[in-house]
Design a protein around this nucleic acid. Structure first.
Lengths: 201, 201
DNA sequence: GCGGACATCTAGACGATGTCAAGATGCGCT
DNA sequence: AGCGCATCTTGACATCGTCTAGATGTCCGC
């Protein structure tokens, strides 16, 4: 599968990451990405169809990295129980956003990508299922207070997503003293998990 | 202050709102905004300097609308205590995002506007102060559990911001049964406020 | 081993965009 | 009346995304 370039799709995705890091999503141009990859300005279209297609593929890869980051956090921290696993998911989510800000930024910019792309939808489903199944396990273990699973899932997702988005926007760091986003994530998710627990110490 | 057009700056801001509603932030073009306002393509630059300047002014107006929405929610729901007021702030935040999606979308897209604009910063400060002062009042009244005010403020902001962002992205509605974002906001903020309260029923 | 089919990439063109410079137009003040 | 200035228009330029045609390299059937 290595013709002229070698692996142009992968090189283009890497170029997108650098381009987003340099100038944000709005600073990404298809021609600049092509230049970074060392090909002509028309080359990306052949593999990804359009700019939206390229960004969609980049966002899809982001969901894979998200799942990887979340599962790694769970594996490393070895939580003792389901609520601990829920907190680990939250830390892994924020950790992904901090570690892959370019991907995170593109993933939720549905106006610049193809939201109906099957691979994109499938990747996001996989990531979301990690959250719901953990919450369901907490509920099955009787560790959740009597709340709708949906409300808990939405709250958890909103909490870590908002934290990550606000942190990356730079709006958060200027207002608070805690400057380590991972510590912040641990504190925030800890507060949340404690709140939805059935028993409180 | 009414020369050729009447009040072109206001007309341009209204045109931005419609343009964002039609095609998202990435679909906004300065020339299209000018066309919507019935002026030539160079007219906006005279009032706002650049596209980023126009969007920054639009985002600044968004912060004013946010403060208005939040204060209206507090005034209408007449919360009995400080925690109730905190919940009202959250509902008002989400209500603003639902009612003014174009503004909300632009406000946190720092890559397409001028994040250092003094008026923009001042407007965001004002809105954030509404949150911190309420939390401080909760703490002063002894109604907060022993948590850092910062963690509570960041959690609260992250929660409602994430909820609003995810809802507007459309990724939320397809996964849950509750289809009224304001009911969802009430449930989520209720859960949160209950969690940070000192006493629990 | 070779020739055609195909994937891959280049090169040029087109309309649209953001920004700039220069000029036209209308308001208010002296 | 006439000057100054804010307001707006017009034209130009580089750049962008996308389309088309063509060049170049690779693989499979014979």
């Amino acid at each position: 599968m290595a013709y002229h370039h070698g692996d142009l799709p992968a090189a283009l995705l890497k170029a997108v990451e650098n381009a987003v890091a340099d100038g944000g999503v709005s600073g990404v141009s298809l021609r600049d990405v092509a230049r970074r990859a060392g090909v002509s300005h028309g080359a990306p279209a052949h593999h990804f169809g359009s700019k939206a297609g390229l960004l969609t593929a980049f966002a899809t890869a982001g969901y894979d990295l998200l799942a990887e980051s979340v599962l790694t956090e769970v594996a490393v921290s070895r939580p003792a129980d389901c609520p601990g696993e829920l907190a680990a998911l939250g830390r892994g989510y924020v950790s992904f956003a901090i570690g892959h800000p370019s991907h995170f930024e593109v993933m939720f910019r549905l106006d610049v990508l193809n939201p109906d792309d099957p691979a994109f939808i499938a990747a996001s489903e996989t990531a979301y299922d990690l959250l719901t199944t953990t919450i369901e396990r907490c509920r099955a273990a009787g560790l959740l207070r009597a709340r709708s699973t949906e409300v808990v899932a939405v709250s958890a997702w909103s909490l870590v997503h908002g934290l990550a988005a606000l942190w990356l926007s730079g709006r958060l760091a200027v207002r608070i003293s805690e400057q380590d986003p991972r510590c912040l994530a641990a504190a925030v998710t800890g507060l949340f998990v404690e709140a939805v627990l059935e028993a409180r110490p």
